[in-house]
Design a protein around this nucleic acid. Structure first.
Lengths: 221, 221, 221, 221
DNA sequence: AATGAATGAGCATTCATTCAT
DNA sequence: GATGAATGAATGCTCATTCAT
């Protein structure tokens, strides 16, 4: 099983025809991945599904993993675009506005090809390249942390703004994600988004939330 | 690829020797899975690592997936035990106690073989049997929902208690999970748990967060 | 032992090269079958003998049995051709002519690759597909039965023409077959054919053959 | 796959218990052979079916093929007994009596465990030891030939009595055999036996069949 | 004698990749 | 550029046989 090293597309196709071929191959890759899973997604199968020869497939992708790599990259890129479109936040926005925007941006970015998103996570989670799927989270965390530091006076006191940012992003992201897993259309119901905003507001805004006190765990027998 | 149907262990070994063999094989399975990933985890490789013959492996497991299935089952079982040990909640507990206990139980159940947990999630996410990995969440969600219904007067008003329970469990679970991914010992720092308790309290306790108000998203260009 | 369903050749090769490959593989199959028997005829062994890679073998045959299936089909087809060439009988032919032709056609059809014939019968008798090896008999039986019904006046009286046809075909076929087993060239001696014609004539033509009378079997002690 | 040379039972069991074990194992062998075919009849499967351990099986049979060998031997022996019981012929019997007896003996010897007979022929035809299944034919041929030489005056002239004996035995045997294949109870109908007697009488008795004359085969195009 | 756990060579089949056309 | 036949290492799994208990 000879395998080259690069995971990059072999050539950036500049001609119309080539672009289409690449497109067709990636579509087929996603389909085959969805139908058969990573382990059973053979290059020959993908090529046949795409209606091209294996040889052609290898003209554009140096090896099997490059296909999935490309799939991930495109998806991450689309997701980032969706996020950026909504999260054009200014550091001066008041917290409630910021929170609403952040939640909406995170939700929206997961409504971009949600089936593909789940597919990539579930099937390619083991691949090294899958780390890229977390790009968006990193971006969001950094943006939030920066905002917290600037707006610290309008927010509840924080020991570790970075940790708070992580908690928010991970939590929102997970709820969105798991909602999609349950039913791909669950996010169409605005209730989810509303709950998330409540969750984040209750966590960030200075309020009457009682201080955390020690509660002893029960005896472990 | 001949494959039998069952994913169940082929025989329940009663003798000392057999028990050990099974143990050794499962250990090897986890190791190989960690080192090579699901796709490259061949039964021959696992057997060699375990120091037994392939034949022996197949004496106890009817096929490859049964190995991973067994790994999952054992882990889920251990996790459930850890959860149960802490989450012996009564429906009459006051919210702050309940919240603390719930968060602690969720955190603790993820400190059982955390590397294995991440491994199973990332590598076996695509497998059908992986659904079992979510068992714990379901349990926790149901328990919380029941509690909310009983204690509705001590909590902030909820439109959909089930959704609220999901939000909490998914959120806590994800923060724990992602913390482990970052650094397997990140949970040793009590700060994470503290933040989670704050998150859930802010979300559940009454009189805290201001009502959600409409915030218009920016124009999508 | 993963096995696809079809027993049909995977692709009908149109190109010269492919045709040759298929030919070479089938030749090798017959050789290995002859030398090692069905149980020990592995696809790897066949491929090696054919001088191609296993992969190539599987490009043309979906599984092991398809190889033997193809072998049987080709042989049955050749046999049928040989039979048809001689058995162009008209329903009006006088019995002696018909009998001679029928016996000759049956003998001739077993002189087509007689070693292969015996090989297929002995080694593949247990396979489902081996039923096809009996195609010729069915054809011959039907033709004879039809003839008997038309020519009943020129023949001895028959209670059950179908049974008579079966007796003749099975008998002739068996003698031919077993003669080949004894010595592959035994049929070169015209004596066998002569005896068979005598056998059939004595059975079919109206003559002095005494009626069957009851003969008591000896006492079983 | 270590395989010893002998095909003989390892020990002739003299004790009651052992005899039963052997019996049970051979019964299981026949069952498994019938259900799964030769290739899939594993010793472990047979042992399990017999309710003994593989080890015990190997105590009585040195290797897999010895099982089938024993099965064949028993069957041939039973068949021979049945044949002998009916074919206690004297060289002085008149032809019609001899013919009837011979046909009846051949038919009867195939009614001993007919399913097993077909099973052994179809599944074990490729084995060397299967030659033994033809023992009966040899015996019958020799007996007939001897009879022909003594009774030549009561029979039609023969160039080659041995060949005539072969023709008869092969023919009768084949009709019996193929009748069983069609329907295991077809021999219950006395019509088959009647036809066979007619066949042999027409072939052997004098003054019946007209001489064989040359009939030209049609031109092969 | 009987058991059945263990062995490991061998088998059918797949699949990433190459390359002659 | 495109094609698809060819390659052969690797995989999941079976099974005849042995041997410690």
């Amino acid at each position: 099983m000879p395998q080259s090293d690069t995971k990059k597309p072999r050539r950036t196709p500049r001609q119309q025809r080539s672009q289409e071929t690449v497109e067709v191959i990636l579509q087929a890759t996603a389909q085959v991945l969805a139908e058969h899973g990573y382990a059973k997604s053979s290059t020959n199968r993908i090529a046949k599904r795409a209606g091209v020869s294996v040889g052609s497939l290898y003209q554009y992708f140096p090896n099997k993993d490059a296909l999935f790599q490309a799939l991930i990259e495109r998806h991450v890129s689309a997701q980032n675009d969706a996020f950026s479109a909504l999260f054009s936040i200014s550091l001066g926005s008041p917290p409630p506005v910021l929170i609403t925007q952040a939640v909406r941006a995170l939700v929206a970015s997961h409504q971009v090809q949600p089936e593909l998103h789940l597919l990539l996570i579930s099937q390619l989670g083991g691949l090294e390249q899958a780390a890229e799927l977390l790009t968006l989270d990193t971006r969001a965390i950094q943006a939030l942390e920066a905002y917290f530091r600037v707006q610290s006076k309008s927010l509840r006191p924080m020991e570790n703004p970075r940790l708070v940012a992580e908690v928010i992003v991970f939590a929102v992201e997970a709820v969105v994600h798991r909602s999609l897993m349950e039913r791909p259309d669950k996010l169409d119901d605005p209730a989810v988004e509303r709950e998330l905003i409540r969750l984040v507001e209750g966590y960030l805004l200075p309020g009457t939330a009682p201080a955390v006190q020690g509660v002893e765990p029960p005896e472990t027998p």
